[in-house]
Design a protein around this nucleic acid. Structure first.
Lengths: 118, 118
DNA sequence: TCCTTAGTTCAAAAGTTATTGAACAATTGT
DNA sequence: ACAATTGTTCAATAACTTTTGAACTAAGGA
């Protein structure tokens, strides 16, 4: 079973920008970039919203072509579509991620750990 | 008389992305980039929408910090805030513009000229 | 089999954005 | 002073997006 993804050449620039123009989704992308290579499932992002709400945002990212979602058992493993995005919009994802990393206003994944450690 | 603009360090990444994630506004930015140096007033963009609608979109671009609007007589001269955007989000504007230039789905400024010439 | 874990779907509500037309304001040219 | 040009504001509406909770599906482990 596989979920629908747009082909690389179907990825729309305004759509990608609109999808990234939401703080929750930008935080998801920033976290994916920081854990690149590690397979992440949806529950990793529960700091950013409810299960239902994340399902919605993750679907938006997938449908826009920003992420790839692989079904593995009951999990969905989510990765950035770095290569496809880079081929279609060179430099865009990198500059967005670099700017997002420096953005203190974005919600953080793992924010609760700070309290736990304290 | 001057219009309100955000300070460079007040420009928000998600807001910039959201504002650029609209085909009309992306077309405005692409045209501004193609005519950099030339002062453009609002009527240059009438191909993209009604006067009222453009006033709305141009205000969004200004309020997000993407453009600067200078009041000169009854005109508003609009320019890209290239330096401020580049300082805050290095490479972002360039990659967006480069991708927008190649996007055939964006509405074009001056599309009517094609008909006129034909 | 039964329970848990992981995530989706649906419908409703709330909030936001885009588009329109009519009325307005300010400047410029005659 | 008058008219034309440029663009804004306002209120209404239409269209979309986000968020929520309850109900659901599907896989995995006890």
């Amino acid at each position: 079973m596989t979920l629908p993804h747009p082909a690389a050449d179907q990825i729309s620039l305004p759509n990608v920008l609109a999808v990234l123009g939401d703080p929750t989704r930008l935080a998801i992308v920033r976290y994916l970039a920081s854990k690149e290579g590690v397979p992440l499932n949806c529950s990793q992002f529960l700091d950013l919203g409810s299960k239902t709400n994340l399902s919605y945002h993750l679907a938006k990212l997938r449908e826009a072509g920003v992420t790839r979602t692989e079904v593995v058992g009951t999990s969905r493993l989510i990765t950035l579509r770095r290569d496809d995005l880079n081929a279609r919009f060179p430099g865009l994802l990198d500059s967005v991620i670099a700017a997002a990393v420096d953005d203190p206003a974005l919600p953080a994944v793992g924010a609760s750990e700070i309290e736990v450690r304290a």
